[in-house]
Design a protein around this nucleic acid. Structure first.
Lengths: 106, 106
DNA sequence: TTTTTACTTGACTATTTGGCCAAATAGACA
DNA sequence: TGTCTATTTGGCCAAATAGTCAAGTAAAAA
């Protein structure tokens, strides 16, 4: 693989890596409904706020979310709506695998 | 987050994690064209065959590819065509970010 | 039957990631 | 001004991941 080609896949992997964590997937799902502040996400997730903040910075660095500070609170918004297609596809992999396993048993 | 909800995001994350590596993205891209044996992939990628085999087993475990042994060779095939949408979306994140950075400079 | 080919797996090391606590920062408000 | 509130960041440890070499397996060829 030449340098240009591998750079292409590295760039893609950076974005996918940013999504590759259950908490971050949950955050993206929440933000796909409407923007949320760190405090709201922290409460829903039930982890340390520092942990949630770290996850948000991973998503931000990848260009998936953007932030907007208003007063004391920082609101995060989804920047790329097509991200939701990832979920649908992941679901179809899960269903596919489950169906195959069922077929093997029956 | 309750157990059922977090199980849902964990299952999704497993699949996305399996894709979150440049070599594995390249493999998926190659397999989206046609099935390939480990030897062909190894040659294209230019890594140790054991490394390529490990990547393939990650993809297989996640249900993204399936294998078919014929003679001495093992052929891997993409099991879920919608995976390609991941790429398109990742590309759009990249373009989006690049455009924004340009706007800031101009 | 032995050897070769194509691949997988075990054992090991190096690196990255995730989580928590505590300290730092930045804006709002008394 | 000081202090409260929301958030980020540094330091640290544990766990997961990626890569390599060497050993193991299974089917084909000699």
């Amino acid at each position: 693989m030449d340098d240009k080609t591998s750079a292409k896949y590295e760039a893609r992997a950076e974005i996918i890596k940013a999504l590759a964590h259950p908490t971050r997937l949950y955050i993206v799902d929440q933000l796909s409904r409407e923007e949320k502040c760190v405090c709201e996400l922290t409460e829903k997730i039930g982890a340390d706020m520092s942990t949630v903040s770290r996850h948000l910075s991973v998503l931000k660095k990848a260009g998936i979310v953007q932030m907007d500070k208003r007063g004391l609170k920082v609101y995060y918004q989804l920047r790329v709506p097509c991200i939701m297609k990832f979920f649908e596809c992941a679901e179809s992999v899960i269903r596919n695998t489950a169906k195959e396993q069922l077929d093997m048993v029956e």
